[in-house]
Design a protein around this nucleic acid. Sequence first.
DNA 1: TTGAAAGCGCTAACAC
DNA 2: GTGTTAGCGCTTTCAA
Lengths: 339, 339
Amino acid sequence: MVTRVTIEDVARRAGVSNMTVSNVINQRPGRVGEETRARVLQAIDELGYRVNLTARQLRSGRTGTIGLAVPDLQSEYHTALADRLVDRLERHGLRLVLERTAARLSAELDSLSAPRLDAYDGFVLSVVAGDAEALAAVRPRTPVVLIGEQTVPDRFDHVLMDNVGGARLATATLLRSGARRIALLGGGDDPEHSMPHLRTQGYRAAHAEAGVEVVEELVRPSSFTRRDGHRLVEELVAAGEPFDAVFALTDSAALGALRALADAGLRVPEDVQVIGFDDLDAGRWSVPRLSTVDPGNDAMADAVCELLLARIEGGPDPRPTRVVMPPPRLVERGSTRLS
Amino acid sequence: MVTRVTIEDVARRAGVSNMTVSNVINQRPGRVGEETRARVLQAIDELGYRVNLTARQLRSGRTGTIGLAVPDLQSEYHTALADRLVDRLERHGLRLVLERTAARLSAELDSLSAPRLDAYDGFVLSVVAGDAEALAAVRPRTPVVLIGEQTVPDRFDHVLMDNVGGARLATATLLRSGARRIALLGGGDDPEHSMPHLRTQGYRAAHAEAGVEVVEELVRPSSFTRRDGHRLVEELVAAGEPFDAVFALTDSAALGALRALADAGLRVPEDVQVIGFDDLDAGRWSVPRLSTVDPGNDAMADAVCELLLARIEGGPDPRPTRVVMPPPRLVERGSTRLS
DNA sequence: TTGAAAGCGCTAACAC
DNA sequence: GTGTTAGCGCTTTCAA
């Protein structure tokens, strides 16, 4: 073990006390004379001293780090969110690190356990597997913001997207352009507050508003990845069920659907229109370009930061928790006909 | 501040000493009687005690966490690598967290600074901006494995891909199928040991071996993202320079190229063959499916883990550093004609 | 403006 | 098998 240079070594060399060195390091104003500071700085330099964040943290409780746990590191939606957060938090001198929960409840709960949270000043969890009941017992001492559509105990700050509104927007656009048989990739009998359930609800609402009957054979379950989207469209084509549009619950599924439609010799948007959800960057480079719903990605990232910072900096007065849900916006590209 | 339950509280309640509690927590074999253990466990449960990892770390020096710093959280290549590493490290009771360097030298060096490294038992840095010179002064006490093609001080373990070999493989395949005017997206006068330089070198080597002249007008610089790939193909088409194949230095650029070729009304692979590099998952879902080079992704992840674990667990005897470079493999899909 | 003392919560090392 | 002592490196508190 290489010996470590401590504050004490620096203090000895500069001929001052530990505390003075600490004051220099932390740039505490007016606590140390100009001359002394210079001497300390020089000692630090000569010795190559670096703070031990672990020790500082044990004493002060601050780590300067925010954690973000996502279900899947490859999820383009979540890495895009992470990127937005890194940029914003950097401006406040905070660093963001990413963890993976693999969408497992055990891992999500684990990420909220005291030992894990101790490493962070604040934590953001993208809840996929958990729900209000599962999270009922969790009372983290670290500020936590939850994202995702699951219902969660109202003791948590919560940022979510308008799934119902966004899905209604997408579906209404297709209906307005004349589509009458809209395949829904990812709809079905999911748990009540899950993302698929909510987006399916928006899909049905739009149909009801337009006075168009939903073709139940076209409502296909569990489809979030490219692979899923591809498979479901294949199945639909094989089943011979005609459809003139596809609403995929995620852009990823929509991209897989595009692939399958090309395989089947169907033209987009002439034969089949396609619309996704999430506004991933990849949708700008697909063939054809993907129309989609922007659920308010920037606004959500803003909200997460604000909530976190308010709790971290805002003293002990327990401000009420907040729920933030920005308005969705339609992004029309080549995979739909202009409405 | 909510008061924290400490080991001392548990000890008092169970009527034992701190050390006994510690022994129970750490499941040290044969150090504590069955009855005592039960009493301690109960006290832990009743009090809701959780270890303070910060304190443990300050004392023991272990954190149980490995850091991985990547240039871009949205880079599909790097998140795929992260996923591979999470899986492997989990098996050894280690957790992986991801950080972003934004491909800036300052951030890369920063990530190797003592305070940052203190948070980890081991660290993996994907070097993009740094080189041997920039890293010369860095002497981390935490085990570090470097990945990426930059030359690095040989005091670091280093895992890299065979950029020259992989690029030669891709280019040779195109030449064998009859291509004679192969656009290179991302070639150019980059620094000597950079990825673009090396892959360009492989491209030229394959031409030389096949006795085919490189068309210099088709060698286009800096192209790694979808956007880049798209733009460069657009420019090529606008310039009226004929080409019968595209070798993109990354799959991402290749996907952008596919988009641009479709815009230009060129058929793939009939009019233009396309091949990428990296073997990203996205390449399986593009239209058409993307042929590519697998640089040995699984083998690289294996190597990173082995090197890390050897240094973490392997005592103080300073084993020699190692450089690992797995063999690349061609993945033929729909964007090329079978060779 | 500077310093001394105390202790954050845990575990290594050794005694019993 | 269990307890005692010491201390990881830092910052808080209070005194000078």
